[in-house]
């Protein structure tokens, strides 16, 4: 099968809407199809990776452990937008999985190299 570079752009908070959860489902399928998968987190999407999400109070399943499982699917390219972190008072230390924090311009360059960009 053809391998293409797929980037999934995560822009929404993990809860409040279903985008983050359903985006993660596509990422896993993309990895299962042995595509060259990477993820970018920006805007409120950076909260998807913030340590210590607690969902009991809102009666939703906490899917944060799934991000930690991405490595098992050989999905290791996780890029986080520095400006989005800073705007929310977050740093790389707040991230629950290994990521590369980079500037918006640098992420833009990586986007340029992609075959398929799916934005959620």
């Amino acid at each position: 099968m053809t391998t293409k570079k797929f980037m999934f752009v995560n822009r929404k908070a993990p809860y409040g809407t279903i985008y983050a959860l359903e985006s993660l489902e596509v990422v896993l399928i993309g990895a299962a199809f042995e595509q060259d998968v990477s993820l970018a987190f920006m805007d409120d999407g950076v909260y998807q990776l913030k340590k210590g999400n607690q969902t009991k109070g809102i009666e939703m399943k906490n899917f944060q452990p799934t991000y930690r499982a991405l490595e098992d699917y050989d999905v290791t390219k996780l890029y986080v937008d520095q400006e989005s972190l800073t705007a929310r008072g977050l740093t790389a230390d707040d991230m629950s999985v290994p990521v590369e924090v980079m500037s918006r311009a640098e992420i833009g360059k990586i986007m340029e190299e992609q075959d398929v960009l799916l934005s959620f």
Binding site: M1, V26, G30, F33, Q35, V116, L118
Partner: peptide, 11 residues
């Protein structure tokens, strides 16, 4: 159908 159809659509 499944999400694989979306990945395939991208390919």
């Amino acid at each position: 159908s499944g999400l694989g159809q979306l990945i395939e659509a991208g390919i």
